[in-house]
């Protein structure tokens, strides 16, 4: 999910129909530049090298979303499999991970490595983050945590000062944690863009395929 605003103009996207490193390629109708839908980066055209601003979004179940945002609007329409439509996290959990960060500065947390009901205090490229898994869906979200250190408690998260925070909204009373872009990726697709150990790209990413498992505080 990206903002379509870029440098003071609003872009409108079409589907180029190409695959770049197994990710679909979009074009913008204003300049004809080509964009990779998974990274939000322009790879060709006048806007080559530009990066779309990632908007935090969440993949979750309809029941969960509706209960959290009863006034949500929803896209109605025909369903279809293939590509995106075939997504089933319950079936393919081990193939997906949560990519946390923005643009080229990302870190991948394979879902099977994340504590199912857990919380991961970590940093991505110097930014202290907390990755929180939604117990109901198994999907994750991430927030900037500053100097706070979180742990899971009674379905919510609690910081070292004992404040209780909403697990998925990152709110505690008037306080609100800043969401960090986090999105589910197919692990092999992610690996086509980001190589572990190559500078900041994917720094600290565990080799995919090695068996679990982060301990507490990983």
């Amino acid at each position: 999910m990206y903002s379509r605003r870029l440098d003071g103009r609003t872009l409108t996207f079409g589907h180029e129909g190409l695959l770049y490193k197994d990710s679909f390629v979009l074009y913008d109708k204003q300049t004809g530049s080509l964009w990779v839908h998974t990274t939000g980066e322009a790879i060709r055209g006048p806007l080559k090298g530009k990066q779309l601003t990632f908007l935090p979004s969440r993949v979750t179940t309809w029941a969960k979303w509706r209960s959290e945002y009863p006034q949500t609007l929803v896209l109605n329409g025909r369903r279809a499999g293939g590509f995106m439509g075939a997504f089933n996290l319950n079936r393919d959990r081990s193939r997906y991970g949560l990519s946390v960060g923005h643009g080229k500065q990302v870190k991948l947390y394979p879902f099977t490595w994340l504590p199912r009901d857990g919380v991961v205090n970590d940093d991505v490229n110097g930014l202290k983050v907390v990755v929180v898994v939604d117990g109901a869906t198994g999907m994750g979200v991430a927030f900037e945590r500053g100097d706070l250190v979180f742990r899971s408690k009674d379905g919510q998260i609690i910081d070292q000062q004992g404040r209780v925070w909403d697990r998925l909204r990152g709110t505690s009373g008037e306080r609100k944690l800043t969401p960090v872009p986090a999105t589910a990726w197919l692990i092999d697709r992610w690996m086509a863009f980001f190589r572990p150990g190559e500078g900041v790209r994917g720094a600290g990413v565990p080799p995919v395929g090695r068996s679990p498992r982060p301990g507490p505080g990983w």
């Binding site: 679909f24 979009l26 309809w62």
Partner: peptide, 26 residues
């Protein structure tokens, strides 16, 4: 909310949310 199964038809969308023009893609 954009159902993944419906997004399987479109793959991509231009929309706005809270006034922000958004590209729906995942």
């Amino acid at each position: 909310a954009y159902p993944v199964a419906v997004m399987g038809v479109h793959e991509l969308g231009n929309d706005t949310c809270g006034g922000e023009p958004i590209a729906v893609s995942w």
